[in-house]
Simulated assay, not measured.
Amino acid sequence: MSKRIITFGEILLRLSPPNHSKLYKSRTFEAHYGGAEANVGASLALFGCDVKFVTSVPDNELGDSALSELRSYGVEPIAVKQGKRLGVYYFEQGASERPGKVLYDRDASSFANLKKGMIDWEVIFKDADWFHWSGITASLTEDLAILSKEALEAASKLGLTISADLNYRPTLWNYGKKASEIMPDLVQYCDVLLGGSDDSEKCLNIKIEESESMDSVFRKWKKQFPKLKTIVSTMRYDANASSNTIGAILWNDEKLLKSKEYKISHIVDRIGAGDAFMAGLIYGLITWPESYQKTLEYAVAASCLKHSIPGDINLSSVNDVTALMNGASGGRVIR
């Protein structure tokens, strides 16, 4: 594994009431660090990849703690230290028919105050092979959307493979611009894209019909963004907060591939499952560049395992994921 990967985003402090309790009246919280792009980077590092994570944190104990957490997974953080706030989010774990709930407290965080010109992308991307970002960063402030484009222009100029997760979060787009006004200008640089049919108009400003097939949707995306080589979408069926059936599809070279499906009957924590999928996808595309089906199966298996792990980050190893791919399940104790 010789590819060097750069991820860019905000690392957050996550606070959750224990034992599926509601936020209302909660007196204690379990603390984890996470955030979409940090989750992807940590998972890739645990898979054995060389990963650097670009972010901004306050110059205090909390910022140092967050960076220390990243290092514990093998990620090398590159952090602009400024401001006084680390972004926070509260996660109320759902159960059965009661959905989970996320409340964000990330306004005016250190990361939210980043602007164009504050990061030397050409230095960071020197000798790198891959750049991963997500739509969450562009949703936070217009300055971050502009900074994202600066990063993408530099990565494209230097020939890096660029991947993105659209990660549409309607509650975060609050600065007067819609995702559909910002994201197409950024997605044009991407080689690999994770998103669903619901994102087509909301994020990419591409209209689709209600009954349109995913093959047709992805062809429209490819036509609009010709640099795209691989498009993927995760799927959930028969879903409530405690039980899901998951799978995914991958479109590459005008072929639509479908993955095996997993029925997850007792979800421990589904936060970060999409990031686990994205990390698995990147790992697979690097490791098995000629086997898109194997890559897809690896990504879905990684996502499946994340549902069994508390916190944001998938702690599964390559051996864990490949064992599930090859038919091992939780029905036996490994001795």
Rank of each mutant, 00 (worst) to 15 (best):
E254L: 03
E254T: 05
K255W: 01
K255T: 12
K255V: 11
L256I: 11
L256E: 09
L256W: 13
L257C: 01
K258S: 13
K258I: 11
K258N: 09
K258E: 14
K258A: 14
K260M: 06
K260Y: 13
K260W: 08
E261H: 13
Y262S: 03
Y262R: 11
Y262T: 02
K263I: 11
K263M: 10
I264S: 12
I264T: 10
I264N: 12
S265F: 04
S265D: 13
S265R: 13
S265V: 10
H266Y: 01
H266N: 15
I267G: 07
I267F: 08
I267P: 07
V268F: 05
V268I: 14
V268Q: 07
D269R: 06
D269Q: 02
D269V: 03
D269C: 08
D269K: 00
D269A: 06
D269S: 01
R270T: 11
R270H: 11
R270M: 10
I271V: 15
G272A: 07
A273E: 14
A273G: 14
A273V: 08
A273I: 00
G274H: 03
D275Y: 00
D275N: 12
D275L: 03
A276C: 06
A276K: 05
A276N: 04
F277W: 00
F277E: 02
M278C: 14
A279F: 00
A279N: 00
G280I: 07
L281D: 05
L281K: 08
I282L: 14
I282F: 06
Y283I: 01
Y283D: 03
Y283S: 10
G284H: 04
L285C: 05
I286F: 11
I286E: 15
I286C: 15
T287Y: 06
T287M: 05
T287D: 06
W288A: 05
W288P: 05
W288V: 02
P289E: 01
P289M: 07
E290H: 01
S291L: 09
S291T: 08
S291M: 02
S291G: 05
